[in-house]
Computed example of a mutant assay.
Amino acid sequence: RQRVALARSVVIEPDLLLLDEPLSNLDAKLRDEMRAELSRLQHQLGITMIYVTHDQIEALSLSSKIIVMNEGLIEQIGTPETIYEHPATSFVAKFMGFDNSIQGQISSIGKDSLAVNVKGNSIEVVKTDGMALQTGDKVNLFFRPNDTKLISKKETNTLPVSVSYSNFQGDSTQFSVKSDEVELRAVIPGKYNKKEEFKFIRILPEKLIVEKETNE
């Protein structure tokens, strides 16, 4: 049905084509096939498409520019690479897979990085352009499950954790861990059953997104 509907839409060669979640009712395999077909058609025909989706993979793979909206308001406009690597708000970060969030307070600011105190643990964050932060600011840190490492001994940029459970997902294993009552997720490649070995979660400094807390 989707292929027929799409063919009817493009046969008249419109200047602009609006697609409102056209793949939402398809199974995973067919959704992948249709996503590739849409990308091929768009490049072949040169039609401008406005594609509405709640799926980050569709947004990243099909677009040259993304507009992220929240309750009718624009949160961020940018290329897929910019939106993915440098989300401007917590809403955009969570949409782009920054599922983990911890609170802390800035303890020091250097030339290239800043240090955030998280329950007595120092977490380094690589500075990026546009950071308007000061020592003492309360902040939220966001990071993806894939940008972490579970380890047995304390290192730099680590938080103590206890493993709640693990979930094998084929090419990786997802862990749910708890750090001072905060639930976090971590993903490691392959299958790993010795979860009792993991005592700390290490967060990559260059992969952290920092946002100042507001009183709203």
Score class of each variant (00 low, 15 high):
residue 210 V to N: 01
residue 165 Y to H: 15
residue 169 Q to C: 13
residue 171 D to L: 12
residue 37 E to T: 12
residue 198 F to C: 04
residue 155 E to S: 15
residue 68 V to M: 01
residue 77 I to T: 09
residue 154 K to D: 10
residue 143 F to Y: 01
residue 189 P to E: 08
residue 151 I to R: 04
residue 103 Q to I: 11
residue 114 L to R: 03
residue 190 G to D: 04
residue 25 N to V: 13
residue 76 Q to C: 02
residue 172 S to R: 14
residue 22 P to V: 02
residue 55 D to K: 02
residue 91 F to E: 01
residue 59 A to Q: 02
residue 199 K to F: 05
residue 19 L to F: 09
residue 66 I to Q: 00
residue 81 E to R: 15
residue 69 M to S: 07
residue 125 V to Q: 02
residue 23 L to K: 02
residue 10 V to M: 07
residue 170 G to R: 00
residue 101 S to Y: 05
residue 174 Q to I: 10
residue 177 V to A: 03
residue 53 T to F: 02
residue 190 G to Y: 04
residue 59 A to L: 00
residue 40 R to F: 03
residue 97 G to H: 07
residue 138 K to P: 09
residue 141 L to A: 02
residue 107 S to C: 10
residue 171 D to K: 13
residue 169 Q to S: 12
residue 60 L to T: 03
residue 180 D to K: 11
residue 122 S to H: 11
residue 207 K to S: 12
residue 172 S to E: 15
residue 111 K to A: 12
residue 107 S to T: 12
residue 88 A to I: 05
residue 201 I to D: 04
residue 143 F to G: 00
residue 98 F to V: 06
residue 103 Q to W: 12
residue 58 E to F: 07
residue 127 K to G: 00
residue 77 I to S: 05
residue 10 V to S: 06
residue 212 K to P: 08
residue 172 S to H: 13
residue 149 K to H: 12
residue 64 S to Q: 13
residue 137 D to A: 04
residue 182 V to Q: 15
residue 122 S to G: 11
residue 66 I to K: 01
residue 146 N to H: 10
residue 192 Y to L: 10
residue 1 R to Y: 14
residue 124 E to N: 14
residue 170 G to C: 06
residue 60 L to Y: 10
residue 108 S to I: 08
residue 128 T to N: 14
residue 24 S to T: 09
residue 186 A to P: 07
residue 157 N to L: 07
residue 107 S to N: 09
residue 40 R to N: 09
residue 60 L to W: 13
residue 69 M to E: 02
residue 125 V to Y: 00
residue 54 H to G: 02
residue 165 Y to F: 15
residue 150 L to F: 00
residue 205 P to Q: 06
residue 190 G to W: 05
residue 159 L to E: 07
residue 134 Q to N: 13
residue 210 V to A: 01
residue 10 V to D: 09
residue 84 Y to H: 05
residue 190 G to K: 06
residue 207 K to N: 12
residue 87 P to D: 11
residue 90 S to P: 07
residue 140 N to I: 07
residue 212 K to L: 03
residue 101 S to P: 08
residue 180 D to Q: 15
residue 155 E to F: 06
residue 151 I to W: 02
residue 166 S to V: 07
residue 145 P to R: 05
residue 142 F to E: 00
residue 9 S to F: 03
residue 150 L to D: 01
residue 30 L to V: 08
residue 69 M to F: 03
residue 139 V to F: 03
residue 66 I to S: 00
residue 67 I to S: 06
residue 215 N to S: 15
residue 28 A to R: 08
residue 50 I to N: 06
residue 159 L to G: 07
residue 17 L to T: 05
residue 106 I to F: 00
residue 150 L to I: 01
residue 149 K to G: 09
residue 107 S to R: 05
residue 65 K to L: 11
residue 202 R to Q: 15
residue 169 Q to V: 11
residue 34 M to E: 12
residue 206 E to K: 14
residue 190 G to L: 05
residue 153 K to D: 13
residue 57 I to L: 11
residue 88 A to F: 04
residue 61 S to I: 05
residue 161 V to W: 00
residue 79 T to C: 01
residue 84 Y to S: 04
residue 182 V to R: 10
residue 183 E to A: 12
residue 16 L to N: 10
residue 80 P to M: 00
residue 110 G to V: 09
residue 210 V to R: 00
residue 147 D to N: 14
residue 3 R to I: 10
residue 193 N to L: 13
residue 133 L to M: 09
residue 118 V to Q: 03
residue 180 D to E: 15
residue 28 A to S: 11
residue 184 L to N: 02
residue 23 L to H: 02
residue 116 V to D: 03
